[in-house]
Simulated scan of single mutants.
Amino acid sequence: MLNEQEWQQEHCEFLSESETLLLRSEECLAHLELIADDRDAIDCLLASLRNLTVKADVACVERIAAFTRQLHDLLDAACPRVALQGDPLHTLKSCITLLAWQIEFIDRRSGQMPLDDSEQRELLERLAFQCGLDSPQAWASQSQSDSLTCQPHA
């Protein structure tokens, strides 16, 4: 369990690193707007989401870790066969915008996010539908069981 001082250090690092990863994700999305389905941009976006998941796991920000993990897994399942343009790209941009907004609302003392995850679920379901993936089981990864277990913050 992280004490308050340890959480403050982890939180500062998480905020800094997540900002960089979100900017990289936004650059990938901008590139995809210009060149639909560019494999390098998709791979960069997937890597950014994977790294953000790891950073959120280390900082014990469970809702962000879960959202980025699910978004990564959905895109990883969809991208070989679905064009990231039009509605799917717009919804993906909404996911990244929501992610940035939610990171801003993480409580700096406890590391908890006082918001529910209904918007996350709604956007993930919309994106899955737009990509032709009917259910979370169609794109859920086994990696969820591999994530770090976090203890509640003091």
Rank of each mutant, 00 (worst) to 15 (best):
M1T: 10
N3P: 07
E4P: 00
Q5I: 12
E6W: 04
W7V: 08
Q8L: 14
Q8V: 07
Q9D: 13
F14C: 01
S16P: 00
S18Y: 00
S18W: 00
E19F: 02
L21I: 01
L23I: 11
E26D: 07
E27P: 10
C28H: 08
L29W: 03
L29I: 13
H31L: 10
H31M: 13
L32Y: 05
L32C: 08
E33A: 11
L34M: 11
I35F: 12
A36T: 15
D37S: 15
D38F: 14
D40Q: 09
D40P: 03
A47S: 12
A47H: 04
A47I: 03
S48G: 08
L49N: 01
L49Y: 00
R50S: 07
N51Y: 07
N51A: 11
C60K: 02
I64S: 11
I64T: 13
A66E: 13
A66V: 14
D76L: 15
A77L: 05
A78L: 07
A78S: 11
Q85P: 07
Q85C: 15
Q85D: 15
T91V: 08
L92C: 10
K93E: 09
S94M: 09
S94H: 11
C95Y: 00
I96G: 00
I96Q: 03
I96Y: 02
T97S: 07
W101T: 12
I103A: 02
F105R: 14
I106E: 05
D107P: 01
D107N: 13
D107F: 06
R109F: 10
S110I: 08
M113G: 09
P114I: 12
L115Q: 11
D116C: 08
S118F: 00
E119T: 09
Q120K: 07
R121L: 09
L123E: 03
L124G: 06
E125R: 05
A128T: 04
A128L: 06
C131H: 01
S135R: 12
A138D: 15
A138L: 13
W139A: 05
Q142R: 08
Q144R: 14
D146R: 10
S147V: 11
L148Y: 11
L148R: 15
T149D: 07
Q151E: 11
